[in-house]
Design a protein around this nucleic acid. Structure first.
Ligand SMILES: [Mn+2]
Ligand SMILES: [Mn+2]
Ligand SMILES: [Zn+2]
Ligand SMILES: [Zn+2]
Lengths: 128, 128
DNA sequence: CATAAAGTAGTAATGATTACTATTATGAAT
DNA sequence: ATTCATAATAGTAATCATTACTACTTTATG
């Protein structure tokens, strides 16, 4: 499973377009909801299969948020604060130089995801 | 759920000791297996509850590896390469200065997890 | 000791994701 | 265009890590 796609199907195009049109990360279930408007008989399994194949092919990227997989157009990079108390994720304006990291590690990279671990302000103010 | 612990129970101590004694990340199920040797009637739910409370309290840390939660002694930092083709994680010898990141972002941090996205050497050599 | 509430054991439920199977669509070769 | 092998799909069932539930037990505190 999660193999590289060899045939360009209508279902794959619908899924790709939905992820590309979105402004923010989208879940498989949300893609499914939107896809059914254009293609009412598409199945959830097909949505998952195509999302995973698009990730393998490098056209979109994914990341787990809590228990669910989220999908983004293109390879991307981001930084989050992950609160160990409430578990919430906060976007943090911090950028890493992917070029620098690629040079130092000798790897060819598409993007990164930096998860900073700590306690958010709201939880800290409750001084648990 | 996942509340801050207020009572120090035998079960919590057993769970904490197992995580601290381990050399590498351990799953809830593995902790459960080891805990039953000392405490045969401990339940899996209790293991999960205590692991999550220990995370909230900051004594241990967690990270999702694939579909499963893994637990580590103390807050920690690490860098991985995540292959978009085979999905495997590879440890990468790259260090970020947590002090520097904390200073730049204004956050108080316990650790970080840097996930580099790309294609591993094995998958790249298959030139998919 | 007495009491309140936090924690536990055992079990059932959840829910996102994957697996399965009969059928259909695709693309290359004839 | 027709044939043919096989990749992909629809619909559904299964998986499985994690959480929820409930009656009972343990802990802390006066
Ligand atoms: Mn958590
Ligand atoms: Mn994946
Ligand atoms: Zn928080
Ligand atoms: Zn790989």
């Amino acid at each position: 499973m999660n193999s590289y796609p060899t045939r360009w199907t209508k279902q794959m195009k619908v899924v790709l377009d939905i992820v590309y049109d979105g402004k923010s990360p989208i879940t498989a279930d949300q893609v499914y909801g939107l896809a059914r408007k254009q293609m009412p008989r598409i199945s959830l399994g097909t949505v998952y299969r195509n999302l995973n194949r698009l990730v393998v092919s490098g056209l979109i990227s994914e990341s787990k948020v809590g228990t669910v997989q989220c999908f983004y157009p293109h390879p991307y990079s981001n930084t989050h604060l992950e609160c160990r108390v409430c578990g919430r994720l906060y976007s943090v304006p911090f950028d890493l130089s992917l070029h620098q990291v690629a040079k130092e590690t000798g790897l060819t990279l598409d993007g990164y995801e930096l998860r900073l671990k700590g306690v958010c302000k709201e939880c800290a103010s409750r001084c648990i």
